[in-house]
């Protein structure tokens, strides 16, 4: 502890003139979000197996449905009257659901921890970084992560012969849109959370969405009133979007689904950046 008293004395930690230090241009120009990505890269570089392992969960679901329930159900009739193999019907829904789950988890639990306990953002904000940099950086990170999972899942789907149309490639950007919409709203919700108990609410919302967004069976199975309610589920729009692409059943409805998700992401981002400012800079 005692150390060498002169070791530090000779070090010029502070340059002599104040004027000599120009403010680093890139940060002020808004490259801050990229620094956020660098930070997350440094963290996850060490725990990459965790990232890899996130890929298995939807695959397990896919296998379980392919081997088990698919064999029990056989084919299902979709909206345009076509018969579709059950596994091919559910796979795109699982892709949409895992995009939702990943985005929600990252934007709620992880962000809450950093906000309240890790105080990571407090430290960052004592530098030239802005709250906007943090918000954009974090959402971009979780989207990037989602993109990796989605690509892997789509490859597995293709290998299992579950992609029936070349439009299927558009499933990839579609997962990005779903991830963006949910991450933005998840983060917005997190800025209102006070304790871990509030996260019970997150589960209470995510589970019904997962189960009732025409994920496991066509909308026609639901009673009429349920069908209307389901249209309010953001995951439903995500599921329909991806399913249309992988099954090749395109229609004008797609624009409606896209518009819904874009609007949701926009509102979430707006609330998030306003609330973060209030929370962190008070």
């Amino acid at each position: 502890m005692a150390g060498n008293p002169d070791a530090a004395g000779t070090v010029d930690l502070v340059s002599s003139t104040l004027a000599a230090r120009a403010v680093p241009a890139p940060v002020l120009a808004g490259g801050g979000a990229v620094r956020m990505l660098e930070r997350n890269y440094l963290v996850y570089r060490r725990i990459w197996p965790v990232i890899i392992s996130g890929f298995f969960e939807p695959i397990f679901y896919l296998f379980s449905i392919g081997i088990g329930i698919g064999a029990l159900v056989g084919d299902v009739t979709i909206a345009n009257g076509e018969l579709v193999d059950y596994t091919a019907f559910v796979a795109p829904a699982l892709l949409a659901a895992s995009a939702m789950n990943g985005a929600v988890f990252e934007s709620t639990f992880n962000i809450f921890f950093k906000l309240k306990y890790g105080k990571v953002y407090d430290a960052i904000l004592s530098t030239p970084m802005k709250t906007r940099d943090i918000a954009i950086g974090e959402i971009a990170w979780s989207l990037g992560r989602g993109l990796i999972y989605a690509s892997a899942f789509i490859l597995v789907m293709a290998a299992m012969g579950l992609i029936e149309s070349p439009w299927g490639i558009l499933a990839l950007p579609a997962t990005l849109l779903i991830g963006f919409a949910f991450a933005a709203c998840g983060m917005a919700a997190t800025t209102f959370m006070n304790s871990w108990q509030d996260f019970d609410l997150v589960n209470l919302i995510v589970l019904p969405l997962f189960l009732f967004s025409a994920t496991f069976y066509p909308l026609s199975v639901y009673p009429d009133i349920f069908q209307t309610l389901t249209q309010l589920s953001p995951l439903y729009h995500g599921v329909q979007l991806i399913r249309s692409f992988t099954l090749g059943t395109l229609s004008i409805d797609l624009f409606g689904h896209i518009a819904f998700l874009v609007a949701m992401g926009g509102v979430g981002s707006y609330i998030t950046s306003r609330r973060l400012e209030k929370l962190l800079l008070s």
Partner: peptide
Amino acid sequence: LYLLAMGIGLGELVDNGTGGT
């Protein structure tokens, strides 16, 4: 929720299923 979604909803597909088992 699970019984509603999987038991009743999915159940309708399974019980009228055309699958091999």
